[in-house]
Amino acid sequence: MQSLGHALKNIRLDNKLSQEEFAERINKHQGLSITKGMVSKWESGTIEPKTRMMKAIAETFHVSIDGLLGLQVPEKESIETIATHIDDDLTQEEMEEIKKYIQFIKSQRK
């Protein structure tokens, strides 16, 4: 499991941003006053961002807070999430069929 600081650094590098540019992008999108120094401390693990900052990072870079924290979604929730995003007007029976199909696919693993 990667640390929060490592996750933040990966997001920043994936977006080809310096620490200053990372802070500026969040500030621009969220109206905050994050500094390069704060980003440096977050990445090094010296301090962790407050909840409000985590939310701002997640919204600005379209990532989940769970992902930033290295949490994994339980398998059952993940199946329901996939089915939910396939189509908004699936019936309960169609959702059950999707779940059965996913279980079938898993049963084919060697």
Results as ranks from 00 to 15, higher is better:
Val39Ala: 06
Glu20Ala: 08
Leu68His: 02
Asn15Asp: 12
Lys55His: 12
Ala7Val: 02
Glu94Tyr: 11
Tyr101Ser: 10
Ile105Asn: 07
Thr60Ala: 00
Lys9Gly: 05
Ser3Asn: 02
His62Ser: 14
Gly31Leu: 03
Ser40Gln: 14
Gly37Arg: 01
Thr81Val: 08
Ile47Cys: 04
Glu21Asp: 15
Ile102Arg: 02
Ile86Val: 14
Ser64Asp: 10
Gln103Glu: 13
Asp88His: 12
Lys50Ile: 01
Lys36Ala: 04
Met95Pro: 04
Lys110Val: 03
Val39Lys: 05
Lys28Arg: 10
Leu4Asp: 01
Gln103Met: 10
Lys50Asp: 05
Lys55Tyr: 12
Lys99Trp: 05
Glu97Tyr: 09
Lys16Met: 10
His6Phe: 15
Gly70Arg: 00
Ile79Trp: 13
Met38Phe: 03
Ala23Pro: 08
Ala7Arg: 12
Lys41Val: 02
Ile102Ser: 04
Pro49Gly: 00
Ile105Ala: 12
Ile82Pro: 01
Glu94Met: 13
Trp42Arg: 10
Ala83Thr: 11
Met53Tyr: 08
Ile57His: 03
Glu21His: 11
Ile11Arg: 06
Thr60Pro: 03
Ala58Ile: 01
Ala7Ser: 14
Asp89Leu: 07
Phe61Pro: 07
Thr46Met: 03
Pro74Lys: 11
Pro49Asn: 00
Leu32Arg: 08
Gln30Lys: 15
Gln108Met: 14
Lys76Ile: 15
Ala83Pro: 04
Asp66Trp: 00
Val73Glu: 14
Ile86Tyr: 06
Leu69Arg: 05
Glu93Arg: 14
